[in-house]
């Protein structure tokens, strides 16, 4: 969606040892995880509802969403508040500490980036991969993540 040679700002976050990146344009803010109020009849990875800058939003535990066991919230834990269309949701991640500009041409689409081509539980949540120096960053497919909530 941008010209070649252009780069876009991404927020990096970690879930269960993997570094993921999400476009900063999709983000409202990054927050310290506040108290969560459970809501009945929801999906297992939806923890409940929480407050973010005055508005009530559902919070998704990405670990659980990606099929990993959950861990307790600590000082590093973050709630990333995202907007997709008209919907706003919070994503609980292990940490989210930096923003990076990733050249868009360095992002490899999902099919190319998966040499094994094998089906992965978290594969559908990946838009593609990018290599930043020694690090490999997974680009998050936000639509797929908040799909169904």
């Amino acid at each position: 969606m941008s010209a070649p040679g252009q780069s876009e700002c991404f927020v990096l976050f970690e879930v269960s040892g993997n570094t993921w990146a999400v476009r900063s344009q999709l983000l409202q803010s990054v927050e310290m995880p506040g108290p969560v109020t459970p809501v009945p009849n929801t999906l297992p990875f939806v923890e409940g509802i929480t407050f973010a800058r005055g508005q009530v939003i559902p919070r998704i535990n990405l670990r659980l969403r990606f099929g990993f066991p959950g861990i307790p919230v600590d000082l590093q834990s973050r709630t990333i508040v995202v907007r997709s269309g008209n919907r706003t949701a919070g994503m609980l991640v292990d940490s989210a500490r930096e923003t990076v500009f990733i050249p868009l041409d360095s992002i490899q689409p999902r099919d190319e980036a998966d040499p094994a081509g094998s089906p992965d539980s978290s594969l559908k949540y990946r838009e593609g991969t990018a290599v930043l120096g020694s690090r490999t960053v997974l680009i998050l497919n936000l639509e797929e993540v908040i799909e169904g909530i």
Binding site: V11, S24, Q25, L27, S29, A96, T99
Partner: peptide
């Protein structure tokens, strides 16, 4: 700083 970066990018 992360939020500032997000705002700056915006």
């Amino acid at each position: 700083s992360v939020n500032a970066s997000i705002e700056a990018a915006r």
